[in-house]
């Protein structure tokens, strides 16, 4: 129990720190939201009036705590650019981003686990060598480049999907999936390559341990030994690794959203930075940080679920 309390307390502390850092970062960066909105030709009076309206003339701590207070309620203020509440903008963009990440993660899990086991079972065999070469190559390819190639091959040549298209999941969920599978593949493939390699190493390490011999001496077939005995043990380090991969997927999808022209949070962020739309930028950064932290928190819990040795009373 104390363990969970500790975890949650540190989670909150880290979130607070991130908000503080994000806030300070945008105070340090030269440039003023009011000027960027009004243009350089605006008179001092106009700028001053807008600063007053936006609350930019208040003291730093005052502004930080009002930002913090708002953030706790999910209120990040109004976008300078769209004059809409930031939370509203964010909610509108969430389905594309979350969908992209979720599909990528599912792809990673569904493909890399069987592939990793296959490679370690037939180590040195033809399948293993083919997969190893493929993973080595794909690991080195950046997601955006893969995205471009996928667009070229499946979009332009094969015409399996319409480039730049997007279907709202509320309108047509299967259509949404059909569109998302391509960008998700672009995000997932390099990560799959990494996960396969990592899992393979882990399984091979486990296979040398004594309990595997015991499992074999009981009369288990090799397949059962792998799936029932080894996999769970081998997944323990992989889970930690997956925590990092998932955080990476979230970051990677920002770029992929550009390539596939998806209306996600990533694109919102890029546009907002260009326009010095600080409330939006702050909100997106805090959102991403929070997701990464929460994912890692879940990974920690999962870790305990899988490995009884680290379970706390």
């Amino acid at each position: 129990m104390r363990y969970y309390v500790k975890k949650i307390v540190s989670l909150i502390m880290v979130l607070f720190l991130i908000m503080l850092l994000t806030f300070i970062a945008f105070q340090v960066i030269p440039g003023d939201g009011a000027i960027s909105r009004l243009g350089v030709d605006a008179t001092d009076e106009e700028v001053e009036a807008l600063r007053e309206a936006l609350g930019l003339n208040r003291s730093l701590p005052e502004r930080f705590f009002s930002f913090l207070g708002g953030a706790v309620h999910g209120d990040f203020g109004k976008s300078y650019q769209y004059s809409k509440p930031v939370s509203e903008l964010l909610t509108a963009r969430l389905p594309a981003t979350v969908g992209l990440a979720a599909i990528s993660i599912i792809l990673i899990l569904v493909i890399s686990v069987p592939l990793g086991l296959l490679c370690s079972r037939k180590e040195g065999g033809a399948a293993d060598r083919a997969v190893t070469i493929l993973t080595q190559t794909l690991m080195a390819v950046p997601a955006f480049f893969l995205g471009i190639i996928i667009t070229l091959v499946f979009g332009l040549i094969l015409k399996w999907f319409q480039i730049g298209g997007y279907i709202d999941p509320k309108v047509n969920f299967t259509g949404f999936l059909q569109y998302m599978i391509f960008p998700a593949a672009a995000v997932a493939v390099p990560k799959i390559a990494m996960t396969v390699k990592f899992l393979k190493t882990s399984v091979l390490r486990e296979l040398k341990l004594d309990y595997v011999r015991t499992a074999r001496s009981k009369g288990n077939t090799e397949r059962v030994v792998l799936w029932r005995h080894v996999l769970k043990n081998a997944l323990i380090p992989v889970i930690t690794f997956m925590g990092m991969v998932i955080a990476d997927v979230l970051a990677g999808s920002i770029v992929i959203e550009q390539v596939f022209n998806l209306p996600g949070v990533g694109r919102l962020l890029v546009v907002a930075i260009g326009n010095r739309d600080y409330p939006v930028v702050e909100a997106v950064v805090v959102y991403i940080a929070a997701v990464v932290l929460i994912v890692n928190f879940i990974v920690d819990l999962l870790y305990q679920k899988v490995d009884p040795r680290v379970r706390m009373r």
Binding site: D210, R213, T214, N233
Partner: peptide
Amino acid sequence: FQEPMTSLNPV
């Protein structure tokens, strides 16, 4: 086997 510490599946 010899090693009772490691011969059982830990999970």
